[in-house]
Structure formats: C-alpha cells, structure tokens
Amino acid sequence: MEWGLRGAAIPRQRALRLRLTSVIGFLALWSLASGAVVVFKLFNPIFLPGPWLVVGDIVELAGKGQLWTHLAATLYRVAIGFGAGALLALGLGLPAGHIRAVRNLLEPVVELLRPIPPLAMLPLFIVWVGIGEGSKIGFITYATFFPMFLTTVHAVGQVDPLLLRAAQSLGARPRQLFFRIILPAALPEILTGIRLGVALSFFVIVISEFIGAEHGLGYLINDGRNFFLVPQMLGAAVLLGLLGYVGNGLVRAIERRVTRWQHHDGAAA
C-alpha cells in the first residue's frame, strides 16, 4: 500500500485496464506521429519508423537467426559481469558492514573511486584489457560493484542492535549472530542494491558494446547508426528495455519470496 498515492483504491481489473490503455495509447501516438511524417512529408520518414516497422525488423532479425547471437552476447556479458560484481560487493560489503577494521580499510578507497563516473573508466579498461570480452565484462563488474557494495555495507550497519541483544541472550555466538540475525535482517536492503546493480548492468553494457564489439544489442544500435537502420536501432533499444524489465521482475520475485514476512500485514486476529 502506497500512502502517498491520491485517489480511491481501484479494483484490480480496472487498474489493469488503465495500465493497458497507457501502453496502447503510447503505441497509438507513436504510430500517429510516424504516420503524420509520411502523410505531410515533414521529414524523411526513415528517421521515425512506426512501431510495426520496428517489430518487423526484430522479427526479420530473428528469422535470420542473428537476433539470438546478439541477445546471447549481451546476456552473457551481463550475467558474468553482474554476477562477479555482486559476488565482490557481497564478499567485501558483508565484512565491511560487520567489522569496523575492514570498513576502515575499504571505505576510503571506495569513496575515492565512487564519484568517478564509471563511463570515464571505460577507455582505461580497453587500454588495460583490450577490446575483447574481458574489458566489457570487467567494466560491468566495476560499474555495478559500487551501488551494491554501499547498500550492503549500509544494510548490515543498520541492523537493530536490540535484535542482536535478544539473540545474544538466547545464547547466540558471533558466527550465529552473523548468519541468523544480521544476514536475514539486512537481506531486504541488500536485494534493493542488487536490483540497482541489474538495472545498471544493462545501462553500461550498451556503451561498452558501442566500442569494438561484433555482437550484442549495443552493437546493433551502433551498427544501425552507421547504416541508417533506424528500425534496427529502435528494435535493439526495445529489446534492452524488455531485458531490463524482466531482470528487474526476476529480482523482485526473489525479493517477495525471501521477504514474505513483511507482506503479511493483515489485521491481527
């Protein structure tokens, strides 16, 4: 329940209809605009193809079997890059949130590097590791590490000290405190950080695929620019949007599962 929202509660079906109307309305406006360009000869219609052309282009690419190669290349880089970033962020963030000495050791370096926009580091990655897979994957790992590390440190540091006291007086030793109290108490916020990381990895993969890639959705966009294939550019963009949407949905589903306890807010019997 969002209390900041105004307006009376809407039945589920009606809410769904409203949401559907929004999507269809958007597509209709887009079609209308590109139709108007053709009819009134406003500018070369190649710049604003209608949604049907974009979908047609995606279907055509899929038919030629190329789409899967590009999708797979992007997904592979994101999976490995994000996975490594998450492992690193949790592996360093959990101890940094829990142990003061580790935090004092890690935080200054992170705070020093964090304000540098990750994009500024991309050319350096290419100089260091070359234009191959290494720099693309490494770049995602680098960019996604920071938000996930910081939310993990914060989540662990925010655990209610009374929970720790309660567990200690039930006999919990330090190890048990960490695994049975700190970890589950910090999990919701850690997952929010992971969701940020997923979104960010789709954000930065495109840019690294602009440079020296032969496959991938980012490559499709850049290739489309070189050859004026606007439907292909928009198609790849739409697919990236869909991938991000699905990725976000996946993490949310995990979140809902592991934080079931927050959502049983029915009335007390």
Partner: peptide, 18 residues
Amino acid sequence: GPGADRGVVFQEYVLFPW
C-alpha cells in the same frame, strides 16, 4: 556478557520479524 542462562524480555518485544 549476555548468555542463555538469563532470558530477556524487552519493552519493544524485539521478535525476529523474518
């Protein structure tokens, strides 16, 4: 230090919500 021989009940309940 705290130990299992002394159970504690707090004003704020302090149940483990998960």
